[in-house]
Design a protein around this nucleic acid. Structure first.
Lengths: 139, 139
DNA sequence: ATATTTGCAAAGCCTTTGCAGGGGA
DNA sequence: TCCCCTGCAAAGGCTTTGCAAATAT
């Protein structure tokens, strides 16, 4: 079951893009409707497949350009996980962790509240971010 | 500073490979001298570069074949981290975490004792492995 | 009018594969 | 002998880039 998503209108998306300094072109708005409302950790390829059905003639280059623009603008986060060569994109930009189902390759967001993490690294290590990946099997 | 390494002799390496069920060919022994004694999270490419200097005429295919054999035999662990498309190989096969220096790309092993991690995931998530990556800057 | 964005194709990087020749058990 | 290993070159998957045409401000 994918995470619950808010349904943004094209106008809301346009506003959000503008405010983030991203030119709200038709292609970018279309992709955002998928990325922000529907998708759950999609790969560039899955995004392209969706676009082919819903907004014909977006090129792969535009998909990647758009993803880069959205990541740079802080609207998306890009993740790369060890089980796949493809990056996935997450509209959940707040701190959280992930669970990977080894069998299906499915990813699930894990709220930071579920994890108690305290660390005592040597002083020389200045940590700015911690990524945690739980691997296993989901029932 | 790379982690301290044991210096194995060719004979010791040969024994270890045999015991792990890996045919100890000249190329594999050579690569192991680097992987087990010298290298610190090398990529396939770095391994190849070392080989070009120290054991001319090992092909990239053999490097990858050897790495796969060693990983399958449990002698190495393969890791993929988000900052790079290249896999890295770690002769530390026990449970441990990593610190990534964002500036240099250098990786450091973090002992599990330095990390206190307790998790309360929903029952449906059966966790078999946890990967933790600390990102930041090393002084 | 000027700067961005788009789409196509080509190139790039990392890794795997097919296959013929070679070496170890 | 037989099977595994090696090396080369080619192919594969994902992403980036160059460039001309189209679009936005």
């Amino acid at each position: 079951m994918p995470a619950k998503k808010t349904l943004f209108s094209a106008l809301e998306i346009e506003k959000r893009l503008s405010e983030a300094g991203v030119q709200p072109t038709a292609q970018r708005i279309a992709l955002c409707r998928y990325l922000l409302c529907e998708a759950d950790h999609p790969t560039a390829d899955e995004i392209k497949k969706w676009a082919d059905l819903n907004f014909p003639k977006i090129s792969m280059a535009t998909v990647y350009n758009t993803l880069k623009a959205l990541v740079d603008a802080g609207i998306l986060k890009e993740f790369k996980f060890p089980h796949s060569d493809s990056a996935v994109y997450d509209c959940n930009t707040s701190v959280h962790y992930h669970f990977l189902d080894e069998k299906t390759g499915e990813l699930f967001d894990i709220a930071p509240e579920a994890v108690n993490l305290s660390v005592k690294l040597q002083d020389k290590f200045k940590v700015t971010e911690i990524q945690v990946l739980f691997r296993g099997r989901k029932k």
